[in-house]
Structures are given as C-alpha cells and as structure tokens.
Computed example of a mutant assay.
Amino acid sequence: MKPVFDENGLAMQAGDIRCFYYDAVTMEYAGWSDEYINAGVSMPGNSTDIDPGEMVAGKVFLFMGTGWRQDEDHRGETVYATADTSSSTVDYIGPVRKGYTTVAPSGPYQKWDGKKWITDTDAQHAADVEAADQKKAALLAEAQEKISLWQTELQLGIISDEDKESLIAWVQFIKAVQAIDTSSAPNINWPAKPE
C-alpha cells in the first residue's frame, strides 16, 4: 500500500513508495530506491515520487519542483572557442554555450565561419613565411660557418685548390639562398648544399 501524505508532506498512512532522488545543487536525477514510509514521516530529502521516465543518451533529467525536464548534458566533452580555437572541458548542464563548438579544428590555422572550421589562409601563409625566413637564416649561418676558415686561408694565400673550389661552391650557395624570396612560401625550391 502506498503512503498518504498530508499538506505538510507527512505520511498520514504508512506504506511503500518508490523515491526518485535529485542532487540538491544541480537538481539532476540521482537514482531511485523503494522505501517504507512510517506514519508521521516525510519522504527522504531531495526526493519525489514522480518518475522521470526513460533516460536518453546525452541528456539529463532535472527536477523542477513539480516534475522533471530533460536537458542536454555535455559535461566532460571538449569544446573549442570559435574565436581562437582554444579548448576547454564542459562542466555545466545545458547546451554548449555560445561562442563554442564540439567540432574540433582540423589544423593549426583554422577560423570559424559560423558553421564550420575553415583554413585561415592568411595566418597559414604568415606562418609559412616565418618558417622560410628561419630556414633561410639557418642555412646562411651554416654556410658562413663553413667558409670562415677558407676565407682566412684565402686572405693569407695558403688555401689549397680543393678548399678554394669548396669555398667558391659555398659562396655560390650563399648567393642562391640570399636570392630566395620567402614570401612565396611554402613553394620554395631551396638550393642544394655543396658536397
């Protein structure tokens, strides 16, 4: 027999009842148990006898005081800020907040067009040019280091014919690298280093 409650929520008649529990803070469904309620006692705290119904994947039941409402539950999912692609983990109940998406950007140079991520060609080109500038500087530094001893030997007139040929090859390499226009990155044909 089911208990009968008065206007204060106290059982006037004892009985068995299924209690559906909810979290005191989030109000989300927390499970159920069958309880025996004695006369003069109320239902356990944060519970109701209203059945929330069948669970749906990706949703959570929230108790609204007089019944249950289903809401989206993305907690634990990674979302991405559409302004800067930064990621964070959802820690709230409800739909994904405005300015975020669950769709991951497909690469480092992405921007949100309102519906999907697209490649930010300007940012990608700027990064390619910067990488080409760094490679150019590294190649020139390596070449300068390679020829420094030979230049000294040349000035002193003690350079061998073989080293002189190497010096000429490396100086030609330096000229070819200096002529590279990095603004065409990533489509650059870098000269081969001398043997």
Results as ranks from 00 to 15, higher is better:
Asp113Lys: 03
Gly67Arg: 14
Gln178Asp: 03
Ser183Cys: 04
Ala104Leu: 15
Asp84Glu: 12
Lys175Asn: 13
Ala123Tyr: 03
Pro3Phe: 02
Pro191Gly: 08
Thr66Phe: 11
Lys116Ser: 08
Lys116Thr: 09
Tyr22Phe: 11
Val4His: 02
Val79Trp: 08
Asp113Phe: 11
Val79Ser: 05
Thr121Trp: 09
Thr101Met: 10
Tyr22Glu: 07
Thr82Cys: 06
Glu142Gly: 05
Lys59Glu: 08
Asn8Ile: 01
Val103Leu: 02
Asn38Ile: 03
Ala192Arg: 12
Val171Lys: 15
Glu54Cys: 14
Ala132Lys: 00
Gly45Ala: 05
Ser183Arg: 01
Leu167Arg: 10
Val25Ala: 06
Leu154Trp: 11
Ala185Asn: 00
Ser160His: 06
Lys164Val: 01
Arg75Ser: 10
Gly9Ile: 00
Thr82Met: 01
Val56Ala: 14
Tyr29Thr: 12
Arg18Phe: 13
Ile37Lys: 01
Ala192Thr: 14
Ala192Phe: 11
Gly45Tyr: 13
Thr89Leu: 14
Asp91Arg: 15
Asp49Leu: 10
Pro95Trp: 15
Ile37His: 01
Tyr21Phe: 14
Trp150Phe: 14
Ser88Gly: 11
Trp190Phe: 04
Ser148Leu: 08
Thr152Gln: 06
Ala185Gly: 00
Pro194Lys: 12
Leu167Lys: 07
Ala24Glu: 15
Gln178Trp: 03
Ile159Glu: 05
Tyr92Phe: 09
Ala39Met: 09
Met64Glu: 05
Glu142Arg: 10
Gln178His: 05
Gly53Thr: 02
Asn8Cys: 02
Lys136Val: 00
Trp117Thr: 02
Asp71Pro: 09
Gly114Leu: 14
Asp6Thr: 01
Glu28Thr: 13
Pro44Phe: 11
Tyr92Pro: 08
Tyr100Gly: 01
Asn38Leu: 09
Gln124Arg: 12
His125Pro: 07
Glu162Phe: 13
Ile37Asp: 02
Lys98Asn: 15
Gly107Tyr: 03
Asp120Asn: 07
Met27Pro: 08
Ala169Trp: 13
Ala132Asn: 01
Ala127Pro: 00
Pro105Leu: 15
Trp117Ala: 03
Val129Trp: 00
Asn46Pro: 05
Gly31Gln: 12
Ser184Thr: 05
Tyr80Cys: 03
Ala132Tyr: 01
Lys115Glu: 04
Leu154Val: 10
Lys59Ser: 05
Thr26Cys: 09
Ser160Leu: 14
Ile17Lys: 07
Asp113Tyr: 02
Phe20Arg: 10
Thr78Asn: 11
Ala176Phe: 15
Ala132Ile: 01
Val41Ile: 15
Ala131Pro: 01
Pro191Ala: 06
Pro191Trp: 11
Ala126Asn: 08
Asp128Val: 01
Thr119Arg: 06
Gln13Tyr: 03
Tyr22Met: 11
Asp23Leu: 14
Leu62Thr: 05
